[in-house]
Amino acid sequence: MKRIITAFVFTGILISCNSSDKTKTSIQEPSATETATETATENASNDIDKQLKTIDTDEDLIATALMAAPAESRSGCKVIGYNMAGEFVTLRDGNNEFIVLADNPNKVGFNAACYHKSLEPFMARGRALKAEGKTGKEIFAIREAEMKSGQLKIIPGSTLHIYFGSKTTYNPETSMVEDAQLRYVVYMPWSTSESTGLPKVPPAPNHPWIMNPGTHRAHIMISPLPEDSE
């Protein structure tokens, strides 16, 4: 009887050990499917990295800047801005209502803008004052006075499209800058929260609000959420 009991106990120990070994093996060794998935993900990531190019030519500046403009208007936009040599020039002539300001290659990150040509005197005045060494507050005050006198004008509803991000690599096939996104500014000179019904601070992400209310630079801010946040 003792021999029979001993045999059962020994058999149980062997079964337990085998089960334990199988469990350890299944945990430590990834399945073929998991390995294939990881490899595919890694290859896809490498493919994306290979597609990206650093913005280092005037052609790159033009291509990426145009992403700030509405897609249907990009072919006719005039493109201005600093070239790779550091000169402020017309990078490309245009024939429609939009002017695109290319990213400044000498600044960190990426920032391009597109605006209606009627805004060019206002924008050019700001650039000229900045070149003279005026501070942001001084530029604001000077243009405020010139708007009040009628020397400068902004048509209410004129829109500024801003395409910005922290990186300076892009996909040459699509011209999209890595991780960049759009923001919109709708100019409404002298408007206030009371006259528009818009809050002075955004109530939540992705909500419009009014900035610089009651001044010449009063404008509606619209900052869409990044695509991966939707």
Rank of each mutant, 00 (worst) to 15 (best):
Y115H: 09
Y82E: 11
A141Q: 11
C17K: 00
I162T: 08
L61S: 02
K137A: 15
N46V: 12
G126N: 00
S191Q: 05
E59V: 15
E178I: 00
G81Q: 03
W190C: 04
S19Q: 13
I222N: 10
E194D: 15
A68T: 08
H161F: 13
S118L: 13
G165F: 00
E72H: 12
S166D: 14
P213Q: 10
M84Q: 14
F88I: 05
G165I: 06
L152W: 01
F88D: 04
I220P: 05
L129H: 02
D179I: 05
I222D: 02
F98E: 03
Q51D: 08
G133C: 06
K134Q: 10
T23D: 13
E138Q: 11
R3T: 10
K24A: 08
A40P: 05
G109C: 02
P172K: 00
G12E: 02
S191R: 02
N96K: 11
C77H: 03
T168R: 08
Y187F: 15
T6M: 06
M211G: 09
I154T: 00
D21V: 06
A71F: 03
P30I: 02
I162N: 04
V100G: 05
F164Q: 11
S229K: 14
P156L: 01
T90H: 03
E146Y: 00
P226K: 08
T11C: 08
H219S: 10
